[in-house]
Amino acid sequence: MEPLLLGAVIVTAGVFAFLNGFHDVSNSVATAVRTRALTPTVAVLLAALFNLVGALLSTSLALFFTDAGIGLPEGATGLGILMAALLAACLWGVLTWYRGKPSSSTHALLGGVIGAGGASQLTSGPAMSGAGETLLLQIVLPLLLSPVIAYVLAYLAVFPATWLLRHGSPARVNRGNRMAQSVLAGAFALGHGLQDGQRTMAVILLALVGSGYATGTDIPLWVQVFAAVLLTTGSLFGGWRITHTLGNRLVHMDPLRGMTAQGVSSAMLFIGAISLHLPLSSTHTMTSAIVGAGANQRFASVQRPRVVRILLVWLATAPATALVGAVFFLALSPLL
């Protein structure tokens, strides 16, 4: 039964990677499409390519997640927790895409893991031990702080950007900012691949380690390619509902502020993945940077009711997926 469950976890992880790319490609292309720096087709192709490169470029964050999940029970129970968490995260991703709301796939996955782990303990099964402090200090806090940092940095970055371009004509400034956006759209997609592409690798590696098929010190090449290809495939299909929300419904965005938001969020993803080895949500950083850059205008440009609704979705993500993950684990428990 355990090999069959392992195969199911790997397949579901592939679905999660596809939905991640489908759901989050909006973050890479929204501002560039909104300001007409890129056409939708070119933007999606560019994002998909750099998502693939980013996912294949590094595995450090995947190994970090594996270390953080060391308290996951071995055997069928651990696989059941991962299966329930993935199903909860996938369901939340589809729901938020349908509603056109940007949300964090990482928060959804973590919520599902916590809920399923709690349900395992509730049914007198093996409990997740030793991972609570690591999850809180090294994963949850960076994910919660990243929106605040992205908002503040994007708001402040508009000042030097405006000052540097103060002598240029509007047409020349907008043309230069659109060119910069074209480059930064690829940079952000690369950062997204570095960050979110490794979530799927981490889940599969945890499943392999728990089943005794891997050691956890290195990621098999097929796992890296599997996650990267499915993330890229999802990106190619694109979730335009969320692109419309980010590009048109949050703030009145001009090329300068679109460039600023992309630059800040791209830098945060790179620093988090390469320098600090910390997981950051591409959705949280880009959405917050868009709102921060858009708020730095002389007229009221932020659609506050929509921003509040998105914040409520973010706050609800982990509790909702924890509840759904617990329900899925209880449904799977007779098979474990």
Rank of each mutant, 00 (worst) to 15 (best):
A214P: 13
L144T: 07
M253R: 02
Q303G: 00
L5G: 04
F237N: 03
W163M: 12
A320Y: 02
Q297C: 10
T287I: 06
G210F: 04
M268G: 00
I139H: 00
T285S: 13
G115W: 01
L144R: 08
R257V: 07
D218V: 11
S105V: 11
L122P: 00
L256H: 03
A322G: 15
V307P: 02
G21F: 07
A108L: 09
G197W: 05
Y98I: 15
G210I: 04
P305A: 06
G168N: 13
A318S: 12
M253Q: 10
T59F: 06
Q224A: 13
N51A: 09
A131M: 14
V29E: 01
Q121A: 15
A326P: 04
R241Y: 09
G132A: 12
S265H: 07
A316Y: 09
L137V: 13
L46G: 03
V173E: 10
I290D: 00
T233C: 14
I204S: 00
G93E: 04
G112V: 06
R257L: 08
A318N: 02
G71P: 09
V148S: 08
D196I: 05
H277N: 11
Y151H: 11
S103M: 14
V173Y: 02
L330G: 03
L323Y: 01
I290H: 02
M253N: 01
L312S: 09
V152T: 14
L156M: 13
T39V: 07
V183L: 13
F328V: 05
G132N: 10
T134D: 14
I81P: 01
A85I: 07
L323W: 05
S105I: 12
T321Q: 06
S211W: 07
T217D: 14
L86E: 03
V29R: 02
W92S: 00
R175H: 10
G125Q: 10
D254W: 00
V229Q: 08
A48P: 04
S282Q: 11
L278D: 01
H252P: 00
V223L: 06
A320Q: 01
F270W: 10
R257G: 03
S129G: 07
H192F: 10
T287K: 07
A48Q: 09
L143A: 07
T35K: 09
Q198C: 06
V209F: 07
G292Y: 05
H277P: 00
V140E: 05
L141H: 05
H107G: 04
P334W: 15
G258Y: 08
A214K: 12
R304S: 10
A171R: 14
H284T: 07
V25T: 14
L79C: 04
L246G: 04
I310Q: 08
L45N: 08
F65C: 01
A187Y: 06
L79E: 01
W97F: 08
F16A: 08
I81A: 02
P102R: 14
G71S: 11
H107L: 10
Q303Y: 12
Q121D: 08
L4F: 12
A316T: 11
L323A: 12
F18Q: 01
G80Q: 02
L194F: 14
